[in-house]
Amino acid sequence: MNSAYQGGWKRFTVLVRREFWEHRSLLWLPVAVCVLHFILALALVLVPRNGMNLQVEVRSEQLTVADSLGGTPGTQVESTSLNWNRMSTASLLDLAAATPPEERGGLLDRLLLGHAHLLAAVGSFLVMGLFSVMLNRERENRSSLFFLSMPLNPWTYLGGKMATGALALVLLWGTVVISQTLGLLVISATAWAHGHAAVDLVWGPSHVFRLWALLGAQLLVDTLWALPLFGSIALMASLGWSGRGGRFGVLLMGAVVATVVDRLYLTGGGLWLWMTRHLPPPGINWEDRGLDALRAAQGKAPALGEGADLVLGMVLGLLLLVAAARALHWREET
């Protein structure tokens, strides 16, 4: 008998290590996302801009904050609007510094988090997409026969892949959190160098731990978003559309599915808001100022469609995965 064999957890760790040996990208992807995020976050905050989109977005947040503070929305919006227009060619740092303290809290972290959201979504989609590659590559180079000759329960094998995905997400989260924090530190230093009150401007009254927790929740929900895409790719791979002649089909179908998913999810327009309402990090007081005030203002009951979109997408993704497994089985048997 194998004296080193310990089964259970030890076997599981070997299965996870095996995935990382095969998919080096699981390691460099989070680092790449982290570096990209750090650079873009700095650019967003430090580089002067006059982008209309950003201005509109900020204005819209101000509107909500103003509303939550109990002011007269019309008056607040007008003054805020003038305020932002006046600062439209400044960097976000300057914009934040020019914002009254009671409206300032959470502004930067909200902007940074919103910015991280895009990269985190891309990252989580990529992680999920890698699963189809995992299965597909084995089939292509026949190494599946080697792995299938090992005494492993299929569920253990699949569990290893799922655990790898979860670990990859944690890595992604960890690196983005690090880059986020580094970004905030650099911004703080810059603010301090320009004579601003860095702690007040960047760190307070929001809490950096809350950003981390929200980012983790974001990654989780984004991964669920990726389920339909992953399911469709797995289905196409199992139907044999992954051959040389079928790659175009995969891309085409990917675009079609992405469009459908986009229509399905994004017309609700509120998954991010849905998440901020439903996935509060434990121990966070939602009635604080700044970002919390913003959330409190939005704290009305979520529209049914927003939550249903996510559930519908998950169900669709799981159905596609089941169909992929069935199709694979059918092809092998026939």
């Binding site: 194998n2 080193a4 070997v14 290590r17 040996w21 095969e22 190494s143 026969l145 090992m150």
Partner: peptide, 29 residues
């Protein structure tokens, strides 16, 4: 134990990784 033709060994693995993998998942290795 099963050996198909040589193409079934995963190309991306190293010799020591294969040994570690087999040791980790096979109770009689």
């Amino acid at each position: 134990s099963y050996i198909a033709d040589v193409a079934t060994l995963p190309d991306w693995m190293r010799v020591d990784q294969l040994l570690t993998y087999c040791e980790g998942v096979h109770p009689r290795f």
